[in-house]
Structure formats: structure tokens, C-alpha cells
Write a protein that binds this DNA or RNA. Structure first.
Lengths: 145, 145
DNA sequence: CCGACGATGAGAATGATTTTCATTTCCGGG
DNA sequence: CCCGGAAATGAAAATCATTCTCATCGTCGG
């Protein structure tokens, strides 16, 4: 990657972070840039390793802190396919779900969720007020078939 | 609880375990009985503490091994509301989802899931073959409102 | 350019879960 | 009813992801 591409990459990450409203630091820019480049999901550990390999030394704690920060701000989603560790992914706006390839971990965002009316009705049948839901779809992508 | 109730409780647990096809042990019977009694979900740690309090000494490792075993056999479901720990719950047969109270953790099983046709279509749009899905609905139950 | 305050790093701490391995228990066949 | 081997158990150590601590550093409004 050329120096020029690197600059563009960094600028894109900075813009994305500003939109979230957090203070800019070298580490956060690196993390955001990496997440923006990655279409699929990634664990905090992988992200940390990848950034170090790329020559951006930073602490594991910082990676966790930043991911938590971004997840709370709604900029990234935390997915829990397998228990015991979370995967993170930079996400589009609005409520949506994910379709994940069981084999290669490729992720596709599914927009246009129209489950709410159905869920509200069913919840009410049990005396509940539905406040949210989380759907994850597993599948096998074209490439892995 | 009378000795007679205890016997009945144990027998019910033994029957449930036999159906799963695992070897019967005192510890497994105790675990299954506790899970069958509990309508809501429970963590491995809680289950272990509760059994010890009830006077059924057993190792934490055994609790984890048994829960894993039962989950693989499909007799219990593992729910991951909050990351970092799993909750377990004895479940009815067949594909279903859960409605969980965010406040008190009360759980209701939602049968009759008719998402598959919709998901298959949407997955196909992205070149995926849908193989499964997991839906969890959060809400507030009548008692907590 | 400066200073307050938020962010970072390194490593220790935490907490759930898993593994190890010696010992005990289960259960089908005798 | 008893035996033997496979399977299960317990206790403690090991793992592993994640969080916390605290001294130091960097950012950014003024």
C-alpha cells in the first residue's frame, strides 16, 4: 500500500471516528481503519495481532477499550457466534441482522428487519413488552460450497 | 421436600437422562433434577452453588462437563445473553426461541418459528444456503413492569 | 504554546471454563 | 451377587478472553 493510500485510509478512519464523537488518537485511528477495511468480523485478539504485524504497536487493553467504546456508540456490532469470545464488525446504520458463513466467517448485513410487529404481538401474549431482539443467521456462502 | 418427593424428582431426572442416552450417575441426576425444576435459565456457577447448598456435593468440572454433554445432546439450550458466561435451561423439543425478561431473567419458550422460508429466500439473494438461525427476544415481563 | 483531562501501556487481576490425572463409580457379563 | 474395564468424577492447575490499576503520555480547547 502506498503512502498516499495510507493517508487516505487514515483520513477515512478519522472521519468515521469524528462522527462517533470520540477523541482522536493514533491507536484509535489504526483500529478504525483496520475495521473499516475488514468486511467480515474479527476478534479483539486478532485485531491486536494484525495491527502489531502491520507495524502499529498498541496495547491489548487499548484494543478492548476502543472496541467497547465504539460498540457503545453503535459504530460497530459485537457478535457472539461462538461462546467465550466476541467478534466485532464495523456496521451500517440502523437495525439490522447478520448472515454469517459457518465455514469462512464471511458476513453479510441483512437490512430491513420486519420482525418487530410479530414479536410485539407474541410477547404481549405472554405478558411481556418486547424491547429488542437479536437474530443471527448461519449459512454457507457461495465460495465455500 | 419429603423423601417421597425427592424420590419422584430423582426418577423424573433419571428418565430424562435415559432419554438422552447417557450413563446415569448421582451427580448427573442431581444436575438434571435441578434443571428440570428451574423454569428460567441458570449459569453453571449458580447451578453448582445451588446443588452444594442442597447437600449434593459435586465438582464444578462435573457441572460443566454435564452441561456440555446435555447441550450437545440437545436436551438443554445454552443462552448467551451477556457475553462472558452462558446460561443453561432445560428445553422442550423442536426448534424454538426464547423471550427473556431483561430484569428478572424469566424465560418463555416461543414455539412455532416460521422464519425459515423468509430466511432461505433472503440468504439465497446473497448466495448463501441458510443452515440455521438463532433468535433471542428481550423484553420486560408483567411482574417487572 | 500550555495545562487539564482523557488515553495508553504493561502487567497483574479476574472469572469463567477446560484440562490433567489419580481415584471412584457404573453396569454388562459371568 | 461379583468383576473388570470403560466411563465419570474431584481437586487443583492451566487456559484464555477480558478488565483493572496506575504511572506516564498525548490531545485539544483556550
Amino acid at each position: 500500500m502506498s503512502a498516499r493510500d495510507n493517508r487516505r485510509r487514515a483520513r477515512r478512519a478519522e472521519r468515521a471516528l469524528s462522527r462517533v464523537g470520540v477523541r482522536l488518537t493514533r491507536q484509535r485511528v489504526a483500529i478504525a481503519a483496520e475495521l473499516l477495511d475488514e468486511d467480515d468480523d474479527i476478534t479483539a485478539q486478532e485485531l491486536h495481532a494484525r495491527l502489531r504485524a502491520r507495524g502499529a504497536p498498541l496495547g491489548l487493553a487499548t484494543v478492548y477499550r476502543t472496541l467497547t467504546l465504539l460498540a457503545e456508540a453503535g459504530a460497530i456490532d459485537a457478535l457472539a457466534h461462538h461462546p467465550g469470545e466476541l467478534c466485532y464488525r464495523w456496521c451500517g446504520d440502523g437495525h439490522h441482522h447478520h448472515l454469517v458463513c459457518s465455514r469462512c466467517h464471511r458476513v453479510v448485513e441483512l437490512g430491513g428487519c420486519d420482525l418487530d410487529p410479530w414479536l410485539e404481538r407474541i410477547s404481549a401474549d405472554h405478558g411481556f413488552v418486547a424491547t429488542g431482539h437479536h437474530l443471527e443467521v448461519a449459512g454457507v456462502c457461495a465460495g465455500c460450497r
